[in-house]
Computed example of a mutant assay.
Amino acid sequence: LGDAGPQLYEHALEVLLADPNVDGIIVLVSPQAMTDVPAIAKSLIKIIKTSDKPILCNLAGGTRIAAGEELLNKHSIPNYPSSERAVASLKALCDYSSIKVKEHTAPVTIPVNREAAQKIIDDAIASGRRTLGLESMGLLKAYGIPVVRSRMAGNLPEAIAVCEEIGYPVVMKIISPDISHKTDVGGIKLNLRNAEDVERAYLTMMSDVKHYMPNAHITGVQVQQMVTGGKEVIIGMDRDPQFGPLLMFGLGGVYVEFLKDVSFAVAPINDKEAQHMIASIKTYPLIAGVRGETPSDIKAMIDTLLKVSQLVMDFPFLTEFEINPLMVMPEGKGCLAMDVRMTLRKE
């Protein structure tokens, strides 16, 4: 109350500190007419110096608490100007205590075809390419990541022939080292069911891309089997100068930049860390299954994250990496990488 003096604060703190259910305390002092802030600060200093539990001070009141704050400062005790900041700091202490006791198991080494992956990267470097798109699907295959059935075509007749070989329905995507977001320039055509659909989509796509990006170098199109019935997620990596490869996971497709619902971890990661990345996003219930929906294949996502983690550790030359989307099928039915993009270091 307004007449609470230093003795009452001391008594309250002693009772709370003796309670085994109390692990940390925030002391909020909002001065009233009779509040002796410096005397209360002296009592707080005495108890804080001897307490083995964290006690955070929130003396609020501007100039009216200045003398008390000065006393705290002299004893290296911070005063938080708002209760929100005090709570955030106590949460940080709580999180840190959990981190200290967390077990860190080493990541498992997965058998891969590293030589095949090295050749793909070497060929790209030799040809002067630094950005690899759909043509780098072989890199994923080398690391055991399932990829959608696909073929490249350099012109319309080749595209029709490839579609007939793969079988309808198909998806057609533009291939260009200059185009990262194909949807934005009309560079993806879905659900093509016959040769007439393919011809119409091909001509429209080339026209749209030329309109939006007239200087883009187009090397052809990628034809893929049409896959439905799954959830789209994104797995990416950006190599930070200090921390190294920073892995990203989130809901994928065209909405990833709009939702910004992603989680991060520094590679290499183990299976528990991969599982935590997946469960950390806000839209996780959509993956886990809501309202009677069958859960997505979380085990397949964990497996893919672990393989990507090993891939980016094996090749420091990779500076950016993105599978978007990774189509995750219902539980037990695996996943398929639908699109991939990676950037190699220039040096």
Rank of each mutant, 00 (worst) to 15 (best):
H11V: 15
T50P: 02
V198K: 02
N215D: 14
N270G: 08
E10R: 14
L336D: 02
E347R: 05
L156N: 04
K299V: 08
S30D: 13
E69W: 11
D52F: 08
Q32H: 14
L44A: 07
D178C: 06
C94M: 14
D240Q: 05
G24I: 06
G220R: 00
P81G: 06
V198Y: 05
M342A: 06
L140K: 02
A201Q: 00
S83H: 13
P169L: 04
M329T: 04
F321N: 08
L286Y: 06
F317R: 15
Y96C: 12
T319Q: 06
L93A: 06
D3Y: 13
V290A: 13
N73E: 15
R200W: 07
T294H: 04
I45Y: 03
E232D: 07
I166L: 12
D271Y: 14
A279I: 11
H75D: 13
H75F: 11
Q32R: 13
E70K: 14
P107G: 09
T105L: 14
Q224S: 06
V87H: 02
E70W: 14
C94T: 15
E70P: 07
H11D: 15
G128M: 10
K74Y: 11
A267E: 08
A116K: 14
P285G: 12
D303W: 09
I323L: 02
Q7D: 15
V162H: 03
R85C: 12
V312Y: 08
C335I: 02
L90G: 02
C163H: 08
V148G: 09
E14D: 13
P268S: 10
K49H: 14
D339Q: 00
P177C: 02
G229A: 03
L247I: 09
K333S: 07
V147D: 04
T304R: 00
T35C: 04
F258N: 12
D271E: 15
E14I: 14
P169M: 05
L44D: 08
